[in-house]
């Protein structure tokens, strides 16, 4: 498809989105509403997935590194690193791309097809900025928080496995997760999270905003929002990892 057309139109839209809001008090209120809608309402899924994935990563690592030359605490170390570096920032962002992206695209898309966006425009409201900017700001604030929660819970999932099964002794897990901790890893993870948060909300906002037609097309837009947000997350994950860690 004409990718360049979409990229051009996306940047043109972003120029209308990222400007000083017409009414600051209204904007602040919207941001808080969106933090609730996009962030707090996703907390449940983040909690469940993080705990279980932390547990599974621990078990997998334990079984696959069962070698006399590797110290047992390496399991804890590997679990912590994969959760902080990759699992929490990237996988949680992909999950949010599905949950939040489809919500944004269908919300804005249905406003488009029922002329609510036209109504905003006619009133003199910058509809693109009004609808999309608070969502972007909300995600930039709340997604890092979700990812940090996910890191703790993921590591706790590993703790649960060590404490209640005989996959590995708890003391070894504990010394593993405290081994050679580098703060830069967290910084790297949060930079990724922030970039992904921007990609999810702006790409989904884009597909919602340019929905054409009726209810069926709203569905198409929200599918496209999820697909393209995910693709760009994966792509930028590679790019950022190369830039920040290499």
């Amino acid at each position: 498809m004409n990718l360049f057309f979409h990229i051009g139109r996306y940047f043109e839209l972003m120029r209308r989105v990222i400007i000083i809001p017409q009414k600051a008090s209204f904007f602040r209120k919207q941001v808080i509403v969106e933090i609730d809608n996009l962030g707090l309402k996703s907390l449940g899924i983040v909690v469940i997935i993080s705990i279980f994935m932390g547990g599974v990563v621990t078990i997998q690592t334990a079984f696959n590194t069962d070698h006399p030359l590797l110290p047992i605490y390496a399991v804890g170390f590997a679990t912590r690193q994969s959760i902080i570096l990759e699992f929490s920032p990237t996988i949680i962002s992909l999950i949010l791309a599905g949950k939040v992206g489809s919500r944004i695209a269908s919300e804005i898309g249905s406003m488009r097809v029922t002329e609510q966006i036209d109504a905003l425009e006619v009133m003199g409201v910058n509809s693109a900025g009004f609808l999309i900017f608070p969502k972007i700001v909300a995600a930039l604030i709340i997604n890092p928080a979700l990812v940090i929660i996910s890191m703790f819970l993921g590591i706790w999932g590993g703790w649960l496995v060590s404490a209640f099964t005989d996959v590995l002794p708890l003391s070894h897990y504990m010394s593993g997760i405290m081994l050679e901790f580098s703060e830069y890893d967290i910084t790297y993870a949060l930079i990724k999270t922030v970039v992904f948060a921007f990609l999810i909300t702006s790409i989904s906002g884009y597909f919602g905003f340019y929905t054409k037609g009726g209810a069926l097309d709203v569905g198409h837009s929200s599918t496209k929002a999820v697909v393209f947000s995910s693709i760009f997350i994966i792509f930028f994950n590679l790019v950022l990892t190369q830039i920040l860690l290499a």
């Binding site: 249905s110 406003m111 029922t114 002329e115 609510q116 036209d118 109504a119």
Partner: peptide
């Protein structure tokens, strides 16, 4: 608007 276009 023809369909009202109230904000849902």
């Amino acid at each position: 608007f023809q369909g009202g276009a109230l904000f849902d």
